[in-house]
Write a protein that binds this DNA or RNA. Structure first.
Lengths: 250, 250
DNA sequence: CGACCCCTTGATTAGCCTCAACAACCGTGG
DNA sequence: CCACGGTTGTTGAGGCTAATCAAGGGGTCG
């Protein structure tokens, strides 16, 4: 299934979750509830601001965004990219305040919903709760992968990992082509991988020279995806979620 | 509340969760269910092995452990330290296989329980589910902090952050004294912060020289905790959990 | 058309790693 | 109780990766 919300007008989140689970009618309806409103944001717009308190979450319906943290020394760490079907603003669920800012990389469409809706989900749909929890766990694992990547591998491997991750996630949301428009600047890629823009440039050039990727402007194509996966030790943590332990749907 | 399971014989997990929420009788009982068995492990023992499939989780009742990943190039990344009241093996919930290995740093006592017990929790105790979910979110945020630390700060700041985190977490579980026995080797600290043992040594010596910490063998005392927090930009993500959005207890 | 952003490239520097040697400590077995 | 081997901590010298500094070119948007 590669249902995309923006093709259906239906729920993007339901589209995403149905990759992992055949949703019941009632589950589907509960998820549709979350996307009754829409909000358009422009490329470059700050959607959420670190330290602000927030009573809402958002489903990404369209576009790319990323979360990042600003450090005391003026540098920035991009902690996660967000694609259609992702939830953003989740970090405010823990402490009530946002731990990360979110900006739109491209023009984007979001669906805001209140945290009370999530509470209702926990109350009425234990199986969906387990799935959402499992996706949070998968995200934690993917973050551990990146931690290992930044802590223990070369600049080249870090960039290879980021590219593998992006392409794998695009595949899941059904926009996966062999060639991809990459709206990130080299500075963005640096802030995601713990490198400087200058060094990102040299490394990407190196990957291109070695025939692992092909670049035409902002279009990127993975030629030696196998070799990229090998170099970065990429594991797709979102390909499959083990639902065998989930409770039965309500 | 600074209830510790190993002092009560009661549930360590309940002790931890009751920091954040006043548990109902029925919630308390559900959590006690999870710790009916005990397993002792020796210092250095491998408790869980990366890539293995696992049908269980564990509550830590006593001792220190850590999760780590092994990389293709022979290096190791420690992804998380585990103290009494923590859940371990969670990474297998997502894909069915463990993303991290776990070893015991000190002799430890664990309580294994099946994933079906967790499913029952999701079905019967939506408020606990929301809390456990929120703690997973907090853990993700803490991991993002470490990502930023490793990606964008100096060796000294990374070590300062690790120390702040350890002391803050010890405080929550009630073992927080000003002085602490640190059972980690400098190699462990290096694998947690993305540094070599040699460089960890130099940095810790530097922190000691500057009067931020005091070391006597494996005992460590934070003298200038304020300055350490300032240097590392530490934020305690587990001090408080916002339960205002949680559903009512069942 | 101009201003700005982004990419590119070169030269130099700095922070951390590697290698190496030795000292201190610990658990073990005799 | 002591002797021993292995692990951990400490220190120095030198090398390498990635950062920093600097400058120019191309593209895009107003």
């Amino acid at each position: 299934m590669s249902v995309q919300g923006d093709l259906l007008g239906g729920s993007c989140l339901a589209g995403r979750l149905s990759h992992y689970l055949a949703l019941t009618q009632s589950e589907q309806e509960a998820l549709d509830q979350l996307e009754q409103h829409e909000r358009n944001v422009k490329r470059g717009a700050v959607v959420l601001r670190e330290h602000d308190s927030s009573r809402e979450l958002f489903v990404v319906r369209k576009g790319w965004l990323y979360s990042f943290m600003l450090l005391g020394n003026g540098s920035r760490q991009i902690t996660r990219l967000h694609f259609p079907g992702d939830l953003i603003g989740v970090s405010s669920l823990a402490s009530g305040r946002l731990a990360e800012s979110v900006v739109a990389v491209t023009d984007a469409v979001l669906s805001p919903f209140g945290k009370d809706k999530l509470a209702a989900l926990f109350r009425l749909h234990p199986r969906l709760s387990a799935l959402i929890f499992s996706l949070a766990v998968a995200e934690r694992v993917a973050m551990a992968d990146r931690l290992a990547s930044i802590g223990r591998t070369s600049a080249r491997a870090r960039i290879a990992l980021l590219l593998c991750e992006i392409f794998a996630r695009m595949k899941i949301i059904g926009t996966g082509r062999e060639s991809l428009h990459l709206p990130l600047t080299q500075e963005d890629i640096g802030d995601a991988t713990g490198l400087t823009a200058v060094h990102v440039n040299r490394m990407m050039r190196g990957l291109a020279n070695d025939g692992l990727i092909e670049r035409r402007g902002s279009m990127v194509r993975l030629i030696g995806e196998d070799r990229l996966v090998a170099e970065s030790a990429f594991v797709d943590r979102f390909a499959r979620i083990d639902s065998s332990w989930f409770p039965d749907p309500a």
